[in-house]
Write a protein that binds this DNA or RNA. Structure first.
Lengths: 194, 194
DNA sequence: CTGATTCTGGATCTATCGGTCCAAAACGAC
DNA sequence: GTCGTTTTGGACCGATAGATCCAGAATCAG
């Protein structure tokens, strides 16, 4: 019909997401987004709407990526190995992408319950992660990899909590070895047998 | 000599700290600080310098409050009871002050390693907390309240991590009961005897 | 090639940002 | 009371925020 776009929308969203992830919503200006995405200002507004809408789209994209990462945890036979894989992948991703913590959790802390749609997106993704963890924990319990009297949901909340706390540990002067020991301790206290 | 101030500096710092705590550095405008403190714009600048200096002063004030809260943990006979007391107090404080998480950890995540002085302040306070936790953990181990093969420092890092993660759990839709269960699990996995 | 449509990028808008200026007000020293 | 000093609050500053306008470039259908 007319002139086609010169960019890939998903790729642009990835870059915008990374910018928000690194510097937060308030800490990211539209100029920053223009620089990060390589798009012109107007193209950005045409495609996504205003800054807030772009942020929501970035949260959406983050949710999609989270779904990918959680896929192994949701398999029928998921267990302790998948949990370990997920934790390692999450930590590795934050290192390679040079981001601290989880985007949705950081957004929840930064923006509070101020915006309804942000709040909804944050809750949805966080719940998705907890659900994935719970499923794999339940699998590990069922097959005896974890021996515990706690409910899988409880352990999932616990894993979620400690994982998110790691960013705070790493961001306040602790080194990688300290973080690794905390992860070890976390898995141990999960109640794994052997 | 001349006209005296119409405000109490410490009280003003408390209010400014609370504002930063609730909305972060970038999310707080000088106008917000004027409204929160009740001071005039110029009085604020006269007393504290620019926004960044006021933020650093607020971090300093936060550190002083943290020292107060940590005092029981540093007593000679500190142990598990003091650990529990500290955790309860920290959680209660966040509820009454309507703040999510720890100010210094949030600042570390929001501002990264961007500013040298913020980074130093954040590390100092975080280390202070970990030191307090470590001391009480060591006391608890010495008196048999905790049975573990882990070093106190390691357990302190673990407590620090999980405590900081609680804000993320609470901020993403989990209710109070879930958080309480995580705290229970945290203390249990500390290795307490009985 | 022409026309209709979409995309692009620089100019531009208003509001607000952090920060300063300055004159009037309020005190203590004398 | 008078003087010198400090505080105070409103006006004001340039810079930048998010957002829009608009003219020209680019493309496809016919």
């Amino acid at each position: 019909m007319a002139r086609p776009r010169e960019f890939d929308e998903a790729e642009v969203l990835d870059r915008a997401m990374l910018q928000f992830w690194r510097h937060g919503y308030e800490g990211t200006s539209v100029h920053d987004l223009v620089a990060a995405t390589g798009l012109g200002r107007q193209s950005l507004y045409n495609t996504f709407g205003d800054k807030q809408a772009l942020f929501l789209a970035a949260l959406e994209r983050y949710d999609a990526k989270a779904r990918d990462m959680l896929k192994p945890l949701l398999r029928e036979d998921a267990g302790l190995a998948e949990l370990r894989g997920y934790v390692d992948a999450a930590i590795a991703l934050q290192k390679t992408s040079r981001c601290r913590g989880c985007l949705v959790v950081r957004s929840a802390l930064e923006l509070g319950a101020a915006d309804r749609r942000v709040r909804a997106a944050v809750r949805r993704t966080a719940q998705r992660v907890r659900d994935g963890l719970r499923h794999a924990v339940a699998g590990a319990v069922a097959r005896g990899e974890i021996v515990t009297r706690r409910a899988p949901e409880e352990l999932a909340d616990y894993l979620f909590t400690t994982l998110n706390g790691l960013a705070g540990l790493a961001g306040t002067g602790a080194d990688e070895a300290q973080a690794r020991r905390v992860v070890d301790l976390m898995f141990e206290s999960l109640g794994q047998a052997g």
